[in-house]
Computed example of a mutant assay.
Amino acid sequence: MATAQLLTAGAVALAGLTGLLPGTGSLGAGSVEVGSLASATPPPRVDYVNAITLPTDLEFGGSRVGGLSGIDYDRASGEFVAISDNRGEQGPVRLYTLGLPLDNGRLATARFDEVVHLRDTDDAPYAPRTADTESVRWLPGRAGYVYTSEGEAKVARPGFIREASPDGGFVRDVPLPDHFTPRLDRDGALVSGIRDNLGFEAMTLSHAGSRVTAVSENALAQDGPAASLDGTSPSRLVILDRASGADLGEYVYPVDPVPAGGLAQATGVAEILAADDDSYLTLERTMIPGQGFTGKIYWTTTDGADDVSGTPALTGSERPMRKELLFDFGTVTPDSDCIEGITWGPRLPDGSRSLVVVADDNFGLAGRTTFHLLSVSR
Rank of each mutant, 00 (worst) to 15 (best):
K154Q: 14
S336C: 14
Y48D: 12
M1G: 14
G341H: 05
T300Q: 03
D85N: 15
A264L: 04
R137G: 04
D256I: 02
R172W: 03
R172S: 13
D360P: 07
V81R: 10
T121I: 02
L37K: 00
D185F: 06
F112R: 01
D196S: 13
Q90T: 09
G35H: 04
D74F: 01
L240A: 10
L7S: 05
A15F: 01
L37Y: 13
G10Y: 01
F329I: 02
I297K: 02
A9T: 05
A270T: 14
E134N: 03
L118K: 02
S206A: 13
S279H: 03
P125L: 12
P257A: 13
I272G: 08
L7E: 13
S192F: 00
T302K: 05
V12G: 14
G199C: 12
G28I: 00
T3N: 13
V116M: 04
T331Y: 01
S135H: 00
T24N: 07
K154Y: 07
V171F: 10
F180E: 09
D103E: 15
E318V: 03
A164S: 15
V332W: 10
G78H: 08
T267G: 04
G231L: 11
A189H: 13
P225M: 12
D47V: 02
T121H: 04
D335P: 05
V376Y: 00
T181Q: 11
M1Y: 07
V376C: 07
G141Y: 07
I272P: 10
R242G: 08
A359G: 08
N86L: 07
L283W: 05
P225D: 15
I342Q: 03
L100Q: 11
Q291P: 00
T232A: 13
R236G: 08
L54I: 02
D72F: 04
L54R: 06
G159M: 03
T24M: 05
I83F: 12
P234G: 11
T53E: 15
K323Q: 12
P128R: 06
Y298R: 03
P349V: 06
E89M: 01
R45G: 07
N104S: 14
G245I: 03
Y298V: 02
L14Y: 03
L20E: 12
D306W: 02
I161M: 07
S69H: 05
G61S: 06
S63I: 00
G199F: 10
M1P: 08
P334T: 13
T148G: 08
A189Y: 05
V12M: 04
P259M: 07
T267Y: 02
G209T: 03
Y251V: 02
S377I: 00
G168L: 08
L37S: 08
N218H: 01
R285N: 09
S352E: 11
R137Y: 00
R172H: 09
S84A: 15
D277S: 10
